[in-house]
């Protein structure tokens, strides 16, 4: 195995062009795998690339560089729109894992239980990809093609996650048998914009409840104009075809379905609360 640590995006892309590279940022998902089987022939560590780390706002859009860690997210000065992302950041592994693990890595790993995905979906995140053909932007919902599968072509690299700025407040809730260090049973990301105490626009996504995280478009529509007092009833009554819970080692489908509805309603209400420090 050879580890490459380029310091520029150009050299990273040229290394990628040679093929056979496994890209790592924080490495928190890659390293445990080194214990079994042959290690990847070539590892490309992008954490040293200049300009790839950090969060900035420009032109109505927030940009989270691909090497930005969860700890960076927690410490960044961000508007309430990102409250959910900050809460999700605190749920990733443990503090040491938050120090190394990156937002973009969490997306590329595409685990059905990735903490960052539902909340970024609710934020309408776009994934910025660079490759031999230049740069392109892919909606996160399209980027995650399936469990452990993403829409990246050979030679391409995720360089940033882009989030359109706008009104609203975020929330995130995760259900697990233990509070921390848990690959969750169900989780919900919500972003709610309100007007005069009623929902102007709701964006909600669930994770861990199916092969991939999903936006709940039916619920989002049903919630428009709702007051906080209506939320529980609307969620309970909603048809949620996106919820396709799976039986697995962590929980049965029935429990997931029940608990997810509770979690959805709570996350929405949380996102409607008076602004708080996440």
């Amino acid at each position: 195995m050879t580890l490459y640590r380029p310091d520029s995006l150009d050299s990273a892309l040229s290394l990628l062009g040679k093929g056979g590279m496994t890209v790592l940022a924080g490495g928190t998902d890659v390293y445990p795998g080194l214990r079994d089987g042959a290690p990847p022939a070539h590892l490309l560590d992008i954490s040293g690339i200049a300009g790839l780390r950090g969060i900035a706002r420009a032109g109505g859009q927030w940009r989270i560089g691909a090497a930005t860690t969860w700890t960076d997210v927690i410490r960044a000065d961000l508007p309430p729109l990102f409250d959910g992302l900050k809460l999700a950041a605190r749920e990733v592994g443990s503090v040491q894992i938050q120090n190394s693990g990156t937002v973009a890595g969490n997306l590329c790993n595409a685990s059905p239980a990735a903490d960052g995905v539902p909340v970024l979906m609710a934020l309408d995140a776009l994934v910025e990809v660079q490759g031999p053909g230049g740069s392109r932007q892919v909606p996160l919902t399209d980027f995650i093609a399936g469990p452990r599968a993403v829409a990246l072509d050979p030679g391409e690299l995720v360089t940033a996650v882009l989030i359109p700025d706008g009104p609203g407040q975020g929330a995130f809730l995760k259900l697990g048998a233990r509070r921390y260090l848990v690959i969750s049973i169900a989780m919900v990301g919500a972003v709610i914009a309100t007007r005069s105490g009623r929902i102007d626009r709701a964006r909600v996504a669930v994770g861990s409840c199916g092969p991939v995280a999903r936006r709940l478009t039916g619920v989002e529509t049903a919630l428009t104009g709702a007051a906080p007092g209506d939320v529980a009833r609307l969620v309970a009554a909603a048809d949620l075809p996106e919820l396709a819970p799976i039986d697995d080692v962590r929980a049965t489908a029935t429990y997931r379905n029940d608990a997810a509805r509770t979690l959805i309603a709570r996350a929405i209400l949380m996102a409607m609360e008076a602004p708080h420090v996440a």
Binding site: G27, Y31, Q96, I97, N99, S100
Partner: peptide
């Protein structure tokens, strides 16, 4: 100076 899990860190890095 920062805590890191040494089982999740490559020495060459």
């Amino acid at each position: 100076g920062k805590a890191a899990k040494s089982c999740t860190t490559l020495a060459v890095a």
